[in-house]
């Protein structure tokens, strides 16, 4: 486990958009609206109900306002220590 670090680019950062669980069937519609609101989509996770992509920091608020969106979170990094470390 390592300290969290964000590796966002300066002009955009990777975000995780979570769709409300009861509105999962509309995920394709929601993805289109997110795109219109400034999200460059990398992946639509249909089972999980999440859309990952990149957006400029000043478009976060408009992403949050899209219908059926539960949350918009900047991406975090996670990890494990190097292979030769005793505690992993």
């Amino acid at each position: 486990m390592t300290q969290d670090k964000n590796e966002g680019e300066t002009y955009s950062e990777t975000v995780i958009v979570t769709i409300r669980s009861k509105d999962l069937e509309q995920i394709d519609d929601v993805a289109q609206k997110l795109q219109a609101a400034g999200l460059v989509i990398d992946n639509v996770l249909k089972t999980l109900g999440q859309v990952t992509g990149r957006a400029a920091p000043d478009s976060m608020a408009s992403l949050r306002e899209v219908d059926h969106v539960e949350s918009v979170s900047p991406q975090r990094s996670m990890g494990v220590p190097p292979p030769d470390s005793e505690i992993q």
Partner: peptide
């Protein structure tokens, strides 16, 4: 040994 939310959630 590092990854990001996008990959983990995928």
């Amino acid at each position: 040994g590092s990854g990001t939310d996008a990959g983990i959630l995928a």
